[in-house]
């Protein structure tokens, strides 16, 4: 399995977020997407899962079920936790497992993997920010998918929870999965390669159509 992008560009609100991004990740590999704030780390992940339209370039996935798109084989862990405060911890996870997966998932095991098994019956409203994050991560454990796209996965997690997530990511890689993670800090994983969005060209490298147009109007 191999996920690759060539010469990828993304425009949001008429502004070019990044352009000319190329990368390739194979099974068992981690690609850490780094860069300053606003470099387009989140946008890159959202482009890969199809939530943001590809302005230029192409994304390809080889060696997977050809019937499914990248988004359908990927887990996306965004900034928001996609949890409902009035549902219990188990109900939240059960919903996403039922919605995303085709088989009945082992809810209890997934909750135990993130250390929330003792809180299964509590409303998600009672959870702290870190606990909510972990419940969100439990979704990745409950439903098996080969590609993990993680946006700042370590944020709001304490040291113990970071270790636990590190363990989950290593297990995922060992099973032949791949990880694309937007991050500021080290992930603590073997076989990590880095994609620095600052260097491959931010807004300054290649003016987009709208910026050229903006420059022309300024001149005239």
């Amino acid at each position: 399995m191999r996920l690759s992008a060539s010469n990828l560009a993304c425009h949001r609100g008429g502004r070019e977020v990044f352009a000319g991004v190329s990368f390739a990740v194979a099974a068992g590999e981690v690609l850490a997407v780094t860069g300053r704030n606003g470099a387009g780390k989140s946008s890159l992940l959202r482009t890969v899962v199809g939530l943001v339209r590809v302005a230029q370039g192409s994304l390809t996935l080889e060696g997977c079920d050809p019937e499914l798109t990248i988004a359908e084989q990927a887990h996306y862990l965004g900034h928001q936790d996609a949890l409902k405060p009035s549902l219990s911890v188990a109900e939240n996870l059960k919903f996403w497992a039922g919605f995303l997966g085709r088989k009945a998932a082992d809810i209890a095991a997934a909750l135990a993997a993130v250390g929330l098994d003792s809180l299964a019956d509590l409303p998600a409203a009672y959870l702290s920010a870190g606990q909510r994050r972990r419940l969100s991560i439990a979704r990745l454990v409950a439903v098996k998918r080969p590609i993990w796209l993680l946006d700042e996965p370590m944020s709001t997690l304490d040291a113990a929870a970071q270790d636990r997530l590190g363990g989950l990511m290593r297990a995922h890689l060992a099973e032949g999965g791949l990880i694309l993670a937007a991050t500021h800090g080290p992930l603590g994983l073997p076989a990590t390669r880095e994609l620095r969005l600052d260097e491959v060209g931010g807004a300054s490298a290649q003016p987009s159509a709208s910026q050229q147009w903006g420059a022309e109007t300024k001149l005239s």
Binding site: L68, D81, A82
Partner: peptide, 14 residues
């Protein structure tokens, strides 16, 4: 949309 569920609904196979 606010809690991020919509992103996951949009990505789905359904």
């Amino acid at each position: 949309h606010e809690d991020g569920s919509l992103d996951l609904l949009l990505m789905s196979k359904t």
